[in-house]
Design a protein around this nucleic acid. Sequence first.
DNA 1: GTCAGTGTGCCACAGTGTGGCATTTGCTCT
DNA 2: AGAGCAAATGCCACACTGTGGCACACTGAC
Lengths: 205, 205
Amino acid sequence: MVARLLLMTTFGQPATLRERKKLRTRQALVDTAISMFSERGFDTTPLDALLDVVEVSRRTFFRHFRSKEDVALTAVKQLWSAYLDVLDETEKSGALVDVFRDAMLATLDRMDQDWYRRFPATLRLIEQSPSLNGHSLQHCAEIQAEVALRLGGPHRLELRLLIEFFVATWRCALDEWLPACAPGELPECVRRAFAAMDDSMRLEA
Amino acid sequence: MVARLLLMTTFGQPATLRERKKLRTRQALVDTAISMFSERGFDTTPLDALLDVVEVSRRTFFRHFRSKEDVALTAVKQLWSAYLDVLDETEKSGALVDVFRDAMLATLDRMDQDWYRRFPATLRLIEQSPSLNGHSLQHCAEIQAEVALRLGGPHRLELRLLIEFFVATWRCALDEWLPACAPGELPECVRRAFAAMDDSMRLEA
DNA sequence: GTCAGTGTGCCACAGTGTGGCATTTGCTCT
DNA sequence: AGAGCAAATGCCACACTGTGGCACACTGAC
């Protein structure tokens, strides 16, 4: 059992037929969701419409995803999950801001082409739907707590602040990137945003 | 008509009986909501339970508040509304971070005793319920956009960053304050958090 | 082949939020 | 004071999301 789990997580393909089938329906749900929500709007597309297309019962959907928002935000969650992985592998030395920034750049480098197709669409959905925005922000908060844990507990005020600043800067970078959404330009947007942090603290009225 | 509106907004008491009555039921909803949610939990308290106690129909409730979360977050919204007022009255000079911080200190000084009773309870509700947390974060985002508007448009990357940092710092200050929640200590928490901003940027691994 | 485990479908239900329409209640003008 | 008007409210029905219970089907192990 342990060996099979390792097989699944190390290479992309799960060993058993059952698990592959499960992943197929999951993937179908994610893909169809993104495309239907993008076309008809998130709030104005009932979940049942998605389920009819994918031919999956509501009960099954909610065994795969916690909510309608959850399936729409899959790309975002994948990014942060990968980010935590990168952070675990990174040896931290020097300024923590740079560690956070470089880990994000490394993460962006890892994401595949399929992700770069879904992620901008997801950002547009978030922009358009308050409900998605709320869930997205809340997920960011959970990630922040996770990052704080990995760096020695949330007790230090300065550390908590820095992590908040990091995520805030990342969101600003996304806003700069969103209009064009050229995959190659995202790292540059991230670098620009992080470079602007110091100046922003010194802004005069 | 205009005169009456001015009367209402300038002094706390609206002129007409109708408007006072409206405010009474609104206030009853807010008070009862905070107390019921605090006692029985936000997610585990059906809206109908609240409506039965206040003796208000669902239809009426949703003419006063946009959602169940909305009524629970009244204290938070009051704070930010007052903050925007203070910001409008303030003449901005010197470092913008200080302007933001001082405006918040001035706002805290303005809030009345009733607010200081409800606000900590609201924070605990937010901490406990993911749904409330999401709505609260989204409201913060709306306020950020509003602040950016009042300072010359959201186009400047540095300005957007600074506003994000300000709100993030405020949230950290709240986290420091939350355990004790002594009204007099909140300004001190705010000052400490803002004082820690620079150090946080220089944190080493 | 049998049997356990698990993913799934179906049904019913609770809870939130909205639209339409009638009713009441406060306000205004004569 | 009384009639008319506008606003607030109540009531009913409905759409949508999310959950619990139970039965069925399929996969994998013995």
